[in-house]
Nucleic acid binder design. Structure first.
Length: 574
DNA sequence: CTAGGGTTAG
């Protein structure tokens, strides 16, 4: 038999899950059930990396407790409200009352924090209803958590009402209210409120700086930053992030270099900045300098590759992170980038390989990922599978429709694309640029000139301004059908500067219909706009050859490097 | 014995 004092001492010293399990066994054998509470409390305060395993274990212990109590449940709710899963925290809060436990103010503020994290206004409001009944009207923690919840779900009015009614406020309450104004985008009101804060701390300052930075007003942000009585990592990181948003990558780097200390957030912000400005090499250099790479760092780098049309490197890095000797558990974000990379490579096999490991990763497909997969399957020609996934979505949004419509478009299913478009309008979703890209692609593949032209013209009526891509498709569509002059007129009447792929589309059409006059014009523009001249020259050369202008044909073939290349920036095949 | 606010990947 082991007594309570001895077990308590052991318990306070234990630091691994294995030891904890042994102690728990002793607790059960000796019937010292009151110690379970201590065990749960103790373990949940460990600062460990494998907190998921830990949480799973404690969760089981909690549910099997002989004498369940509010304190233990509160500890578990607090733990989940800090690390996630937040839904689980809310669910535990509901469950504890179902088994007859009365929530403490601690449990309640943690539950409210979780509601704020996942924007769960429904549970948030129902907890609000309990505050009075349970007598937490004067608890500053509960009141502040509640105020913060309303701030985060965008209900500044209710937040302010709570703030005014609070009997006791501290700097956290002020900061929550401030972040409410900032989240609502009300910078003026926020600034006014900020000045009223009696005892500002570093978070008050950071919030205000972040507000200016997010709105792109880096002058005001910088001026505040300089006035700060005290700065921490987040202050610096906010400034870097602000410069990144404004596209001032050089200033961002200056701040990054100047800061006294850096954490992962600093590195990730900087990498994301380089990614946004298209400087993949600089991003990679930073990435390689980090010796302790966490999930978010991998995600930032993989996303950088995926967004900058470097899908192969994205997948290489993904493979690297899941190698046993490195293993970083990927999450949904990682997969979103990986799927996008697969899609760019039209590599269905790689995805199938990932899919085998989904349960190891502990990832369940959500609508976001399914939408990415629709795009992948559609691009790989498996339009039926794409349809299956589409029908399995909980909510069909604009992105899902555009993936589907585009997928139908490139697979020659134009009537399906139109049906989807009509269905989308019925769902009250307004079309955007991507939707029209899909539709026009569908018309283009089907060679439906009139319909395509009509659709193109209807864009303006729906308040969508055609982009270079749309002009490119239209020129291709008109050109292939032999309406070369119409295509040329479309280009000359463009509201923006045509690029090489627009002219390239005309050049291709000229090749198909052997039109020397327009072909010469098109090729001149192409050469002016693109460095890869060989492909264009070879095209023009073959137009000359087709109409029997052999000398001209020969002249242009000389500059050719030997092979006909695809027109750069052009998604349709020659 | 536990609780509430600011900065990171799409």
């Amino acid at each position: 038999m082991v007594g309570t004092p001895k077990l308590t001492t052991l318990l306070k010293k234990c630091s691994t899950l294995k030891q904890a399990k042994e102690i728990h066994a002793h607790i059960l054998i000796n019937g010292l059930f009151h110690l379970e509470q201590l065990l749960i409390h103790h373990i949940l305060l460990w600062n460990v990396t494998n907190y998921k395993t830990l949480a799973r274990y404690v969760h089981v212990v909690l549910h099997r407790m002989r004498n369940p109590d509010s304190f233990s449940w509160g500890c578990m709710i607090r733990f989940f409200s800090q690390n996630g899963p937040f839904m689980e925290a809310i669910s535990l809060y509901v469950q504890m009352q179902r088994i007859g436990l009365c929530p403490t103010s601690h449990a309640m503020s943690s539950a409210l924090k979780s509601c704020a994290k996942v924007q769960d206004g429904f549970h948030g409001v129902s907890i609000h209803g309990q505050v009075h009944v349970l007598g937490f009207n004067a608890c500053v923690y509960v009141q502040t958590a509640l105020l913060d919840l309303y701030s985060k779900i965008g209900d500044v009015g209710t937040a302010r009402k709570l703030f005014d009614e609070m009997s006791d406020r501290n700097v956290v309450s002020w900061n929550s209210m401030l972040s409410g104004y900032l989240k609502a985008g009300n910078l003026g009101k926020a600034q006014e409120f900020f000045e009223e804060i009696p005892k500002k701390d570093v978070i008050s300052w950071n919030s205000m700086v972040s507000g200016y930075a997010k709105s792109g007003d880096m002058d005001s942000a910088y001026s505040l930053f300089q006035q700060m009585p005290e700065r921490n990592l987040a202050s610096w990181n906010t400034m870097i992030g602000g410069f990144v948003v404004c596209g001032s990558i050089v200033s961002a780097r200056e701040f990054f270099n100047a800061m006294p200390m850096r954490n992962n957030v600093s590195w990730i912000t900087m990498i994301a900045g380089y990614s946004k400005s298209g400087d993949v090499e600089s991003a990679r250099k930073l990435f390689d300098k980090m010796n302790k790479k966490d999930l978010l760092l991998y995600n930032a780098m993989i996303a950088c590759y995926a967004q900058n049309s470097r899908p192969k490197e994205a997948l290489e890095l993904f493979s690297e992170m899941i190698k046993p000797e490195i293993y970083v558990n990927p999450d949904k974000m990682t997969l979103a980038s990986a799927i996008s990379a697969c899609s760019q490579l039209a590599d269905l096999e790689y995805w199938c390989w990932i899919e085998l490991h989904m349960s190891d990763f502990g990832i369940v497909l959500d609508d976001h990922l399914i939408t990415a997969l629709i795009d992948l399957y559609a691009k790989c020609g498996s339009i039926d599978r794409a349809y299956e996934l589409f029908h399995g979505l909980k909510q069909r949004d604009l992105v899902a429709y555009s993936a589907m419509i585009y997928g139908c478009g490139i697979n020659g299913r134009s009537s399906d694309a139109i049906k989807l478009y009509e269905q989308m309008l019925e769902d009250c979703i307004r079309p955007n640029l991507a939707i029209y890209t899909g539709l026009l692609t569908a018309y283009n593949h089907a060679g439906l000139v009139e319909e395509g032209y009509q659709c193109f013209n209807s864009m303006k009526e729906n308040g969508v301004v055609p982009s270079l891509d749309h002009y490119g498709i239209m020129v291709d569509l008109l050109g292939r059908a032999g309406w070369l002059n119409e295509a040329y007129n479309l280009i000359t009447n463009m509201s923006m500067q045509p690029n090489a792929s627009v002219w390239g589309a005309l050049l291709l059409a000229c090749r198909v219909h052997n039109n020397v006059e327009l072909g010469e014009i098109a090729v001149q523009h192409c050469i002016k706009l693109e460095s890869d001249v060989a492909g264009y020259c070879s095209l023009l050369s073959s137009i000359y050859a087709a109409v029997g202008k052999w000398d001209d044909a020969k002249k242009f073939r000389m500059s050719e490097e030997g092979k006909i290349t695809k027109v750069p920036g052009c998604s349709w095949k020659i």
